[in-house]
Amino acid sequence: MLAANLRRARTGRGLSISELSRQSKIGKATLSQLESGTGNPTIETVFSLSRVLEIPISDLLDARPAGGLTVVRASEAEVLSGEGVDLRALRRIESGDAVFEVFDQRVRAGRRQESLGHVGTEHTIVQAGRLGVRVEGNEVELGPGDCVSFDAALPHGYTALDGEVRSVLLLQYRADQRLHLTDATPGVPCVTEG
């Protein structure tokens, strides 16, 4: 899915692979591999592409609405890994002028995950462990049940302070930030409400 969606988003923005490489700081060879379907992206790559192309992450990874009952099994969900975080996409929800993406987020023990920023508003709800969150120089510590929200375009980072941190990551976008793909393709489930 990433190959077709990336190509569609890049050409829709009128960007060459060279220009996308320059703006995203991702090598041209890597981008070519991703567009040909032979690359294996990291969290950092997907978030960087989301930031530069100004689209939700799920628009790079998915586009197919689902109907009825949808079950996402932990053992079957594809994991997107970064330096310190593993993300499993659980759901995309569209309601009125808003799009929400729900991820199971695991921050590995003693690891830090940095982001230059990306489209949307980020909400993280800690389920287990202690999570350090840094947003543009401001740092907070969260425990189970705590939540943080911020403009995801700001540089930010997560650190697992005591062992692995389990959390729910909710990314919120405006509907006008969507890529508006026309082909039905498999991937992260989508529900439309409203």
Rank of each mutant, 00 (worst) to 15 (best):
I55T: 00
T185E: 12
P65T: 03
L49Y: 02
I26R: 13
V126E: 11
E35A: 10
V107H: 05
R73E: 14
S75A: 15
C190Y: 03
F100Y: 11
E54T: 11
L161H: 01
E136A: 14
Q177S: 10
G187W: 05
S16R: 01
P56D: 04
V191A: 07
H180F: 12
V135K: 05
S58A: 03
A74F: 09
L6M: 04
A74W: 08
G132P: 01
E141A: 09
Y173L: 04
L69E: 14
R88H: 05
P186D: 09
L161G: 04
R51A: 11
T124Q: 06
D151G: 10
V126N: 04
G68D: 01
T42S: 15
G132W: 04
E19L: 08
L20G: 06
S167P: 07
F150Q: 06
S36I: 04
A184L: 15
G117M: 08
E94G: 05
L171R: 01
R7Q: 10
H123K: 01
E19R: 07
S24K: 10
L179P: 03
E114A: 10
L49H: 12
S58L: 00
S36T: 14
R91W: 00
R13I: 03
Q177E: 15
S167Y: 14
G82I: 09
L15A: 02
R130D: 04
T70G: 00
